[in-house]
Structures are given as C-alpha cells and as structure tokens.
Design a protein around this nucleic acid. Sequence first.
DNA 1: CTGAAAGCGCTTACAG
DNA 2: CTGAAAGCGCTTACAG
Lengths: 352, 352
Amino acid sequence: MDVPLTAAHEAADTPVISRPRNPTLKDVARLAGVSVATASKALNGRDNVHPETRQRVVDIANRISFTPNTLAQSLIAGQTGTVGLLTHDLEGRFSIPILMGAEDAFGSGKMSVFLCDARGDAIREQYHLQALLGRRVDGLIVVGSRTEPRPSLGALPVPVVYAYAPSDDPQDCSLVPDNVSAGRLAVEHLVATGRTRIAHIGGDPGYDAAVSRDEGIRAALHAAGLPLVGGDTLFGNWSEQWGRAAAQRLLDQEPGLDALICGSDQIARGALDTLHERGIAVPEQVAIASFDNWEILVTGARPQLTSIDMSFETLGRIAAERLTRAIEGQRTHGVELLPCRLTVRGSTVLGA
Amino acid sequence: MDVPLTAAHEAADTPVISRPRNPTLKDVARLAGVSVATASKALNGRDNVHPETRQRVVDIANRISFTPNTLAQSLIAGQTGTVGLLTHDLEGRFSIPILMGAEDAFGSGKMSVFLCDARGDAIREQYHLQALLGRRVDGLIVVGSRTEPRPSLGALPVPVVYAYAPSDDPQDCSLVPDNVSAGRLAVEHLVATGRTRIAHIGGDPGYDAAVSRDEGIRAALHAAGLPLVGGDTLFGNWSEQWGRAAAQRLLDQEPGLDALICGSDQIARGALDTLHERGIAVPEQVAIASFDNWEILVTGARPQLTSIDMSFETLGRIAAERLTRAIEGQRTHGVELLPCRLTVRGSTVLGA
DNA sequence: CTGAAAGCGCTTACAG
DNA sequence: CTGAAAGCGCTTACAG
C-alpha cells in the first residue's frame, strides 16, 4: 500500500472548520452580474439569453463548481427523477443484478435508482417505504426473496412494480421468473443431448420455485414420452448436503439413470460430489443440470454446471420499463412470467 | 399461487387516471381551519398550540394520509438525513452486509442509506456521485472491491468514508479489514489446536489481500517457531480449480503436512476436493482454514469450513459512526485497520 | 395561542 | 434580451 497505515487519529488540534456551503444560483448570478432568473435560463439552455451572457454565467458556474440543488428543482417539477428499489434479498444475489438491469433500462442522465434493504421484515419495509415516499420517489420496484405472492403495498401515491415475488393483488403489476418453463427448458436440453433416463432432485417443497420447476420438468418429460426416473421427485431443501444424500439414494435405486436435474446449483454441487465418489463420469455417464446459475457455484464445479439462469438483469430491465410507462400514466397489471435462460456447460455437454 | 397467472395486459380501456397529488400542509390547514404555520407547529409538536387545535390538525392529517414533503423540509434544514453508499461490489457480497451494518448504526428514524452501484467503473462512479451530491446527501460511504488504495474523490461538499478500499489520500478517512492480522489469526487457531506442519495456498498475488494474509501467516508461524511447510507460499488465483491443483502439488511434495491455510473459501473448497480424492481425513489428518467466510461455500462443504470473516457488518457500522461524527464536524482521517473474526467449524476441529 | 411574512434554492410565466 | 414576481411545500422568527 502507498498509504501510511497509521491508526486513525482525530484531528483534535484542528478546529472544526465549518464546511463551505454549496454555492447557490444566487452566488452565480451575483458573480456574473445578472439576475437569478437569467442565470437559471442561461444554465438550462433556455432561449432568449444573449450568447455572451450565457457564456459568462456558465464560466462562473464552472469556476465555483456550482451544482444545482436538485431538491429545489424537484419541488418545482413535482418529480424527483428517483426510483426506489426496495428489496428483501439478504444476500444481494437478486437485488444487485436487478438493480443493474433497472439502471441500464432507465439509461444514464435521467432516473436514479436507490436501493434499500428491508431484510424480509415488514416493519423495515414500512419504514423504508415511508422514507422513500417522503423523499418523493417517482416510483418503486419491490423485490421479494421468494416467488410466492406477497401482500400488496396497496394504493400508493406512486406506481409500484413487484419483481420476483408477485403482489397478491392482481391489480398490481408483478414480474416473476417462469419456473415452470425453466423446468421444461432443462428437460428439453437433456433430451436434445440424448438423455432418456432423467431424474429430479427437488429443492425445498415449501417453495413455489421448487414445485413449479418440478411441474415443468414433468410436463416436458411427458411431452417427450419419457418417464421421470425414480417415480416421485425427491424433495428436500436447497443445500449441498441434500444433494449428496438424494443422489446416493437415487443411484442406489436407479443405477440406470443418465441425467440428473437438480433444483438448485447447491443441490447440484452435492450431487456431483456423490457421482465423483462413486466414480461415475460426468457428463459421459450421467449429465447434471440445475437452476439459478449462481456464478460462484457453477464455475467452481468440475465439470462446470449447466444451469438455468433466472435472468435477474432482464427482470430489472423490464421492471424499469413497466415502471417508466406507469409513471407516464400507462399502467400495466397482472403477473407477467419472464422466461429463464439455459446456460450450457460441461456437466451436460462434454467439453462445453 | 393464489394470483391468476394471466399474461399481463394493459388497461387500454381504462382512461389514464391522473394520480391524485400528495396532500400538502396547505390542504391539512384548510381542512382544519387554521393557517399553515399553525398546522406545521401542531404536527411537529411545537409549543404554543392549543391542545384541541393540535388534535384537530393531527386527525385531519391522518385522515387524508398527509406525508410531509421531505424535499421542502430538507431545503430549509440544509440537511437531508440521507447518506449515499456508493459501491463497486459487483456481487453484492460486500455491499449488502456493509449496508446493513451502516443502517443499524444510524438507527431507524434518523438517517436513510441509499445504495448505488458503480460497477468498478470510474465514469459510473462520477455519474452516481453527481446524482447523490445533487440530491444533497449529508455524507457518503464509498465501498471498493479490493483492499488496495483507490483514487480519492478529493474535496467534496460532504464528508466521505472509504470502506474496504482505502483512499490514496491520507487526509481521507478509510476503513479496511486487517488482512495481516487475519493471517495471524488463522495460524494461531491451528497452532492452538495442535498443528505444526502448516502450509499456505495463496490467492491471486496481484491482490493486496492475498499478500497481506500471507504476511500475517508468516509472521505468526515465525512467532510460534514453526516453518511454513512447502517453503514458499504457492500463489495462484481465487478459484476452486487453483485450490485443487495447488493441494495436489503440496501433498505430493509435503506428505507430512497437517494443516492447510487457503487464501479464500473457494480455494479451500478446491483443496478439500483433493483431500477427499486422496482419502485424507479432514480434520483428523489435515485441517483446513480459509478466509472470507462466504456462507454459501463454507456451510456447503463437508466438513464445513473454518474461515475468517472480514466482518463487513462491523465495517459498515464503524463507517456509519465515523460518518456521523464527520457530519457533526469531528473529522477522522487516516486508514483504520479493522479486526477480522475467526469462525470455527468442522474443517479444523472435529465435530465443531 | 394564532397567523402573516420571509425564506430555503430554484423555475417559469410575464412585463419591460 | 433581462429581471421582478410568484410559487413549489415547508419552517421559523416575529407580531399580534
């Protein structure tokens, strides 16, 4: 490091220097010798300002680093150019990509997105909601941590888009990844790569995501005229431990299986461990596909895992689009299901 | 799901309903039959308001769901009660816990923290900085993605605390996890649990974190009168792949080692794989300790990994404290090193 | 105890 | 082309 790593010390000897206040338009006007009205017009590119005057004002503004006080502008405009992203995602795994997608959709220079974390807690949600509303955000994106419906925030003075977890009020606008079609996607990929003896290790059956994925898997197998190997889906939880245990049971009962769909990447990591222990080659003997496409888990595996991405960035992008339209007065309502994306890697296709 | 999962449809038939504007203090005053001045005082608990008048105003305000426009209040107060958390953390792994710690320290009811993601990009950082400054945040916490010094944002109209990545200007206030002492911690734990043949698989040597951890490890081994097994630390990158490869090399060369310190949890996961493959019992024959304590990696491992937590929540909490003091005029400067926390699990202590 | 006035920092008709 | 005035929604001395 280039910086001396001294213990921090307070500048006790330094008197408290009153921080210089931000320069105001009045300061600019005074220094440029014009009225604040003219200064405002000059800075905002309005017509009917003499070029020389404008230049003078702009120069002064730059010289004193004038930054217009957005609060005052918002007060007048009745809009703040701000959107709140209220999330319940404790890990940031959903909210950061959703935030990115939303920012990209809003485009720079226009809308700013600010993230607040309510930590799955209704009290905190209410608190942040008030803070955001009091600061007059133009709209809200509410991100849940599960795909089951959550209580609607009700009628609010600004539009709301629910992402990942839909609102329980069909009048609200909700965006949810389509887990059923995600399940279908997994099967179709395995079938397309020649697998016929496919089993499913499910996640926590208390989650809609686990059940919906299973539903899609069964539907696609049925459509392909293939059985679900093992008969019933084994449900458990989302852990590697469960993946290991379930894979052991399955392999004991169904030695002929040639593909495993795992309810999450964590489960797939566990299952992979079991296959390695038994000396079963992946993907040559058994292929593995899973859901979530969680970078850290998927790329560290050997072989890397084929996984179905929930497309959080797209979710964020579309949420921003819906919100923009709603702010403009064009509301959308109902639950919109968003397609997921298959990401092929070595666990299903040799050398991929 | 209880909600009908229809494709979203636009309310094309519904006319664009102009959203009712937020009620203002003027509305409250009018309905209560008082002046806005009195309404303001009544609502803000000021003295010299007749109890009956106050009650009437409060009732009206509640009835029409009056929420004071914070923009106007902030304009007057010159403070917004808002802090910006400007992060470069692409995964949210640092920023979410830091955000939580900061929120906890600020306490509810006072300061709100809004997170913006600059994605490691100086242009975006500048953009968000302007957005935040324009909205007159009272202070900033800037979170980097690496522990090497980063360019200072320079003199800003509000105080800044740099977290995780320190500023290169010693006049700024920076908070960084103490990776040297983290390395020491790992060794001391292993020594305390009876290990004497300790090796280190380092992360990416281009990272200060990798080098500092190594430094602490060497210092502590030296202090304990023990050698670093393998002679030189093997540096590579942060991946599981590297952990597997390095562990293979180490075991070939140093069959007598009884403990492995891995530069990250990912590396540890890889090393663990190699130990399993060779039938080496963990922790009975070889113990493994690592850094980061990344939940998903650490608890999924078998056995679970002893790891050193960078204490992001504490980092956030202290950043908030420093920022609060700075906002009050008591600035702190220099780089402050924050202790990390050992979390013991089964990879070093049987049955832990 | 109550209210008219001034003002926070800005913008926008409206006169000149 | 320029500036005085009114106003966004609120608060705070200051008269009454």
